[in-house]
Amino acid sequence: MTAMLLETEDLTVRFGGHVAVDAVSCGFRAGELTAIVGPNGAGKTTYFNLISGQIAASAGRVRLAGRDITLLNVSERCRLGLGRAFQLTNLFPGLSVLENLRLVVQARRGRGFSLLRLAGSDREVTREAEELLARLRLEALAEQPVSELSHGNQRKLEVALLIALDPLVYMFDEPTAGMSLDEAPVVLDLIAGLKARTDRTILLVEHKMDVIRSLADRIIVLHNGALAADGPPEAVMASAVVQEAYMGRELEDV
């Protein structure tokens, strides 16, 4: 059995009297893609925020590769290998597409603090950013300011920034939300490609069941902030708790 790359232990956060994430204990192995599902307001994004450090835990711990990171801030966690893409697109709008990617590659390589070099002069950084652009089929837009991109392309870039970061733990929060049908496969292929990296783990918050079926090795279900189910996709989807908490309602909506 491989060791857990990421673990949360009784992870809890309270906002006033409301318990948004309720004592979630869960481990994530390397080489695994875990889909996190649950109805709106179940605490999926809040759980992500607790893991990546955007909000502080009221109780419990987060461990990355065995190291307790509960008290570290966002940027420290990121440098240890925790990478996150956001549900609401969260880019550098005034800068070009290429510059957005270069900033991430440069951050990972720790080259931000050089004051007298020229920004474009680091060939390795530029090449890596350009390769990623090609995989996303965004080469033609390299010099465009991000603020002028379509929503779909901004979503693609959001995912690309995380891939450029090359973390140990990838956290995708509804990566294909609002994308058109022909755009989503590019992003999903990229995520599927990441599964070849068996020393990494991938967390994916997703609503679309077909996406989950094709990508997930495991599903965990959050309901009212608590862990309601955990297991292989077929078993979890069939279980009563999911039918009640999530699937059933979704089906009714449809």
Binding site: N73, F92, P93, G112, S114, L115
Partner: peptide
């Protein structure tokens, strides 16, 4: 002029544009 066009200058611009994300990609803002 050189400093604002260095890798450091780009990080400053990134922080101006979106300090939240600059932090999330690992910069010590």
């Amino acid at each position: 002029l050189r400093i604002v066009n260095s890798p450091f200058g780009r990080v400053l611009q990134a922080i101006r544009e979106n300090d939240f994300r600059a932090e999330a990609i690992g910069y010590r803002v």
